[in-house]
Simulated assay, not measured.
Amino acid sequence: MSENVAVTLELKQSQIDYLDQMVQKHSLPDRSKVLRCLINFAIDESQNEESIYCKTRCDHC
């Protein structure tokens, strides 16, 4: 398993709220674990990149 690397991100409050909800709902240790799960999902679903990255889903994208 590789080592985690610290990064700085800019997020909207609603995105932070979502991460916090997922921490609670899935008993995850912190927001960074939620983000790693989401990134790993996107990697696993690379055949669906257009669906993941090209569709506008919100007002703050």
Score class of each variant (00 low, 15 high):
S2K: 09
S2N: 12
E3L: 10
E3Q: 15
N4Q: 11
N4I: 11
N4E: 09
V5S: 07
V5R: 08
A6V: 12
A6F: 10
A6T: 14
V7Y: 07
V7H: 05
V7R: 11
T8L: 09
T8C: 05
L9Q: 10
L9G: 08
L9R: 11
L11A: 09
K12L: 05
Q13R: 14
S14P: 02
S14A: 15
Q15K: 03
Q15N: 06
I16V: 15
I16H: 04
I16F: 01
Y18Q: 05
L19V: 05
L19W: 02
L19S: 00
Q21E: 14
Q21V: 06
M22V: 10
M22L: 12
M22S: 04
V23S: 06
V23I: 15
V23W: 04
Q24K: 13
K25N: 11
H26E: 12
L28W: 08
P29C: 05
D30N: 15
D30A: 05
D30P: 01
D30V: 01
R31S: 06
S32R: 01
S32T: 10
K33T: 15
K33A: 14
V34L: 00
V34R: 01
L35N: 01
L35E: 05
R36Y: 00
R36S: 06
L38T: 13
L38M: 13
I39G: 04
N40M: 12
F41D: 07
A42S: 10
I43P: 00
I43T: 06
I43H: 11
Q47Y: 06
N48W: 06
N48R: 15
N48G: 00
E49D: 15
E49W: 08
E49T: 09
E50C: 05
E50V: 02
S51N: 13
I52R: 04
Y53K: 06
C54W: 15
K55P: 00
K55R: 12
K55D: 00
R57H: 08
R57T: 10
C58W: 04
C58Q: 13
C58K: 13
D59C: 04
D59K: 03
D59Q: 08
H60S: 12
H60F: 14
H60A: 14
